[in-house]
Design a binder for these strands. Sequence first.
DNA 1: TGGCGCTTGTGAATTAGTTCACAAACTAAT
DNA 2: ATTAGTTTGTGAACTAATTCACAAGCGCCA
Lengths: 208, 208
Amino acid sequence: MKRIAESTVRRLSLYLSFLEGIERQGLKTVSSDELARLGGTTSAQVRKDLSLFGSFGKRGLGYFVPELSEKLREILGLGKQWRVCIIGAGKIGAALARYRGFAERGFNVTAVYDSDEAKIGKRWETLTVRPISELEKDAAKQGFDIAVVATPAENTPAVVKQVVRAGIKAILNFAPVQLSVPSDVTVRNVNMAMELEGLSFALSNRSE
Amino acid sequence: MKRIAESTVRRLSLYLSFLEGIERQGLKTVSSDELARLGGTTSAQVRKDLSLFGSFGKRGLGYFVPELSEKLREILGLGKQWRVCIIGAGKIGAALARYRGFAERGFNVTAVYDSDEAKIGKRWETLTVRPISELEKDAAKQGFDIAVVATPAENTPAVVKQVVRAGIKAILNFAPVQLSVPSDVTVRNVNMAMELEGLSFALSNRSE
DNA sequence: TGGCGCTTGTGAATTAGTTCACAAACTAAT
DNA sequence: ATTAGTTTGTGAACTAATTCACAAGCGCCA
Ligand SMILES: NC(=O)c1ccc[n+]([C@@H]2O[C@H](COP(=O)([O-])OP(=O)(O)OC[C@H]3O[C@@H](n4cnc5c(N)ncnc54)[C@H](O)[C@@H]3O)[C@@H](O)[C@H]2O)c1
Ligand SMILES: NC(=O)c1ccc[n+]([C@@H]2O[C@H](COP(=O)([O-])OP(=O)(O)OC[C@H]3O[C@@H](n4cnc5c(N)ncnc54)[C@H](O)[C@@H]3O)[C@@H](O)[C@H]2O)c1
């Protein structure tokens, strides 16, 4: 299959969230034009994105909402349940671990790790904070699909080494550092400082 | 000035963070090649990005680290202090309000708002949670440059209307909804579910 | 001063991503 | 059955972003 751009995958995610809203409204079909309007793009873009994976629409009608939702979930790999561990039981880690929205989409937080003796052993709803030193052993036993890394920037490269050694192939990183990982490991960064700087840039350069 | 792509601005942010690390190491100059290596891009990309704003380097030598840092801070609008308010005193709002990293870069959280009576009036370190109904009045008095929106998805469109009415021109949105705002308001979205779906896609489509 | 080694800045070339535009396929109405 | 009205799927055209490639500038040293 040909390479799919990250921007395409982001839009597919977006379309799926729109479809879920449309389904709740009880509509049976939707046109590429309507999805484009919701997503701030063009109908040609929507059709191109979908056509990378097949022909899901009916000419003259549009797309059947439940059918297209299902296809998108399949494409995005959301059919299955993913096992997620959170590394770093701090402020961000706590917010993420307690967030209901992830499990709804099949991302199940099944463990939380920290290096701080004061935090290890603490109960977080159904989870207990575990020592990071056990990560590799636990991963071998129960297997994690995704690691969410929410540790201080300076410790994060070392943490990520452990994550990689534990055989985890996908990382969502919240620390403001650039990670270097083997090519079979996928990283996505959430860098809020960078987003704020983008806003700062926009505010500083308006109307020029 | 010509339009600058968002991807360029993201890279400028990244370069700046590298420069700060390099400065701490005590190095005086850096080449585009070194910055490219750190950022996982090419030296031509680095030079193109910078050349959009001027000629900051010295041939044969590279860039003077403190000088380039300063230039980047200027370009990104980081010379000044920005006033930031957080809307939604929930899990994410709490993590953000207590995060030290923002003030270090000139983003000062000066107020937190919520609609929940139980939360209004609570003290958060130096801040007191204020009723969202006061947002417009407060904004007129003290002025906010940036609003961080961390409210439940269903309430977020209404919240954003209030933010826009309060005259705030930049929004960092954590709710998984697409916002519609006037064209003079800049929005950046942080959508963690979408990032996880990107990882899910990568895990599901490896080696094809 | 001249030559060498290095690195920038930037047009040109290339590659990637988006939009156009239209034939083909479908529905509904008569 | 025919026609009018939609909307898809997709090459072709276009636009944006990245990479190439090299002249020109600079430091250093003999
Ligand atoms: N809090 C925010 O709003 C916010 C915003 C943007 C970015 N971030 C980034 O997210 C990361 C976490 O931020 P935070 O505010 O939650 O910090 P925090 O200090 O509240 O939490 C960090 C946690 O990581 C743990 N830790 C440290 N080293 C570890 C190791 N080697 N192995 C396992 N655990 C370890 C600490 O014990 C602590 O519990 C940081 O990199 C920060 O820059 C946070
Ligand atoms: N917690 C997470 O890790 C996480 C992760 C990804 C996305 N999000 C998103 O971030 C947003 C906030 O999530 P959270 O977990 O912090 O939720 P939360 O329920 O902990 O907090 C939301 C807060 O917003 C307040 N609120 C509701 N309506 C409001 C209004 N009209 N005006 C002002 N305040 C209002 C609530 O009183 C509450 O305090 C949600 O949209 C959620 O989907 C959260």
